[in-house]
């Protein structure tokens, strides 16, 4: 089949997509799939890069595995997972300002790896408005459940470690969520806006943030 170079690449591409769809559909890591197939994770990674086509015998094993798992239950997506998959900007932040979970969209906007964002303190990553917003939330009892939601217009800016580089204006919506440990987390969501929208949002909110309270 793979005698001419073009059809060979086509086949590798088909297997690459097949494997990735199987893993993503069933939430399986490369290492776990490698173990199920009795190969190294490096091999799975090579298949998925499209560089190598699985051998014929292995193709049959992969098909068998994918077919048995079709129709198996996948768990309800928990709130934290839902945040981490979000295409928009979103994060779960503690009262102390630690970013516990960051969304795919936030990581994309920051152009940093997940490891450089999650587990980090807001002030290690950011300067300016976002830190100000954290202070406002703390001062107004957000983490004690005193607020229902907060809408904001923030100028995102990196901390000095990142040379205070501007990220840009962001429209934010924030609400408290009681986490597994019974403590309130800050659910941060946002989307980039233009400088003009930023100005009009600031006027609309009467400042950086508008608080909606329960009492």
């Amino acid at each position: 089949m793979a005698d001419d170079d073009r059809s060979g690449r086509g086949e590798a591409e088909i297997w690459r997509n097949y494997l990735r769809r199987y893993r993503f559909t069933n939430n399986i890591k490369q290492a776990a799939l490698a173990e199920d197939l009795g190969v190294t994770q490096a091999m799975v990674s090579r298949w998925e890069s499209g560089a190598v086509t699985p051998a014929t015998g292995m193709q049959a094993r992969i098909r068998a595995l994918a077919e048995t798992s079709a129709g198996m239950a996948s768990p309800l997506v928990g709130w934290r997972n839902h945040v981490s998959f979000q295409p928009g900007m979103a994060a779960v932040v503690t009262a102390d300002g630690v970013i516990e979970t960051a969304s795919a969209g936030l990581i994309r906007e920051l152009e940093l790896s997940r490891g450089k964002v999650e587990g980090k303190s807001l002030d290690a990553l950011f300067s300016g408005d976002l830190l100000g917003l954290h202070n406002i939330l703390n001062a107004k009892g957000f983490f004690d459940g005193a607020l229902e939601s907060v809408e904001s217009a923030d100028m995102y800016c990196f901390a000095s470690t990142y040379k205070n580089r501007d990220i840009g204006p962001v429209h934010g919506l924030h609400w408290p969520h009681v986490a597994e440990d019974g403590r309130v987390r800050w659910m941060l969501t946002g989307a980039r806006i233009s400088p003009t929208e930023f100005e009009s949002l600031r006027r609309e909110l009467g400042g950086q943030a508008e608080l909606t309270g329960q009492g």
């Binding site: 239950a73 996948s74 309800l76």
Partner: peptide, 13 residues
């Protein structure tokens, strides 16, 4: 590229 296509649907059961 990451999804290996346009969409991935996870069945509940």
């Amino acid at each position: 590229m990451r999804l290996g296509g346009n969409r991935v649907i996870r069945k509940a059961i």
